[in-house]
Amino acid sequence: MSITGLFLVLFLLFHMSMNLVAVISLEGYDMVCEFLGANWYALVGTAVLAAGAVLHIVFAILLTWQNMRARGPVGYQAPNKTETEWAAKNMFVLGIIVLGFICLHLCNFWAKMQLVEIMGAEPAQGSALIVSLFSKPLYVVLYLIWLTALWFHLTHGFWSALQTIGWNNNLWIPRLKAIACVVATVIACGFAAVPIYFFFFYNA
């Protein structure tokens, strides 16, 4: 979970930087899209990324199943009152929300761009997709819900991954949690900038 999670955080940072190009220049964004089309390096990157995402999900399902069984045949009657962070207890549910939106997102963009190009046809223009999709309020709201879930997922996931690989002591726990919050906020705000910019400020 931790290794694949950290890998996916790196990918999110990369993807977010790429998106921000669209806010600065749509031509620049189309150049990035062209660069990451059906070339061998982009395909290798996509395959590694897909493997990382699938592993993360498979481990999550497996571990959650084991964890649910570990409580035993009878659960507690009184709801648990131990003070913990909400995100920490709801990582699987948050993960399902994030996954659902990834599917939507892949249909919105990837299926019309890299996938079409792999099939041998002419891919859609990235900038045109962004402009048309984020002129619809429904999609802007959906993407913002997704990013909120992602923010919660990352506030726990980032420091939790580092704790799991052993990078922690009494001094570093508050520091890592602060870093996790910064990373989650940078990623969520960076992604949110694109739909917000194209809905409110962009005039064709």
């Binding site: 964890n67 069984r69 131990t82 913990t84 799991t164 922690n168 002591n169 009494n170």
Partner: peptide
């Protein structure tokens, strides 16, 4: 048959001897 750790820190909050997750 114990479960896996997902770093919720509930254990640390309830430990009578306040053992830390470090």
């Amino acid at each position: 048959g114990f479960g896996n750790c997902t770093n919720t820190r509930a254990c640390e909050a309830e430990c009578p001897k306040q053992i830390k997750i470090s």
